[in-house]
Design a protein around this nucleic acid. Sequence first.
DNA 1: AAGTGGTCTAGACCACGGC
DNA 2: CCGTGGTCTAGACCACTTC
Lengths: 240, 240
Amino acid sequence: MANVQKDGLPAYKQIQVAIRKRLELGILKPGDLVDSERELARRHGVSLMTARHALTALEREGMVVRRRGAGTFVAPPKIHFNKLMSYTEQMSGRGLTVSSKVLSLNIVHTEQEIAARLALPATGPLVKLERLRLSAEEPCAIETCYFSADEFSGITKARLDRLSLFSVLEHEFGIQIAHADEEVDATTADAHAARLLEIPPGTAVLRIRQKIYCTTGKAAMYVLGLYRSDRHSLFIRRFR
Amino acid sequence: MANVQKDGLPAYKQIQVAIRKRLELGILKPGDLVDSERELARRHGVSLMTARHALTALEREGMVVRRRGAGTFVAPPKIHFNKLMSYTEQMSGRGLTVSSKVLSLNIVHTEQEIAARLALPATGPLVKLERLRLSAEEPCAIETCYFSADEFSGITKARLDRLSLFSVLEHEFGIQIAHADEEVDATTADAHAARLLEIPPGTAVLRIRQKIYCTTGKAAMYVLGLYRSDRHSLFIRRFR
DNA sequence: AAGTGGTCTAGACCACGGC
DNA sequence: CCGTGGTCTAGACCACTTC
């Protein structure tokens, strides 16, 4: 049968990878017509539903646009909508060099509200990791992460200077990150944040509170981020 | 065959409606186990893939959470993630009464950048509709919409005071809205905006620029929104 | 072991777009 | 008209969770 996954990757994801590669190589350019569902199915030796699955997911990422009767087209910009990526991943995907400075890393017992959001005991020990994110040597964002100290012990300061927190969690702790629910609003930088971000106090910044879930359905991490609004926009795609 | 759509609604959407109704009636509460794919398929007389489609889409809206091996559960909050809704629709969905005040409604020829974003001629006539959005008599947002004056002529000031712009476009102009690409950032209210929103100048506000597309793939409208950050949060769900 | 979601097949008909 | 995406069938096996 053709549905044997000889490698670990499902067929529909392999199709996505193939399309993404054609985009990176410049074979496909924005506006171009992507192979139709039937064409993809034939070429990859899969059924229509599988080829369809690949394209539908790519559309939700904003990579392609599908139009009934017309075809599937490569979307204009190179922005990944609705794609959960760590700061490191997002920025390096745009060719920007990023670095992080760990401002503080300690264990707290007093953040009852955040512990509750992670469905942990109110006084449960939490790792609180505060990092300043820099891109091209300029401070851009402050991210404060909270996660269970019991589950993720041994996260060292040294690692997080260069590695993505996501990759550390995924590779070294075997966590599979599934999705994040985010609350976005605007606020003004207080004195502390303004000094770190090198902006005047009272400047508007984008605030994002993330609750990150893993595939088991558990909330694994809570992140509070403050982003310089002159350096950041959030791109999202919403469907009717 | 069972796949005849005797009414206009596809089977998978009918299943969604049924689940949503059970939630509204209180039969289903957050945390509850939703019918499994097989159960839904049997009950609605559809195939597994169709029942599955219904649940998958509900998950992307944040209404349910799916866990392999365990089941599908009703998600805790009552927030619709990633669901494109007009201001009117969003607010009335939360039981808030909204009203709009049309600040200006005229035709402009000078907004070249916005015309370009809508793929219209640079000097093409654009309807510029500026509205103040109020919720419970309090000013909450300023929304400035731009759309082609040629295509959408006859939009009257009177209608837009109470009707959703989306519903006017969809019902009276036969437009089917498909999705919106949005750019979100933070900025400070200038004197004009601050006066209208009744906040001190310099307050941080959430700025959302929307490009709204219809099912034909055409960009139908461009919207610039300024939202009081003490009254608004944007909720989104992103996937890995 | 039983039940769940995740992937997949090999077809089908429909609605729509462009020629 | 033909090709496209949108919906749908009636099954199948796998990986996983729960008991």
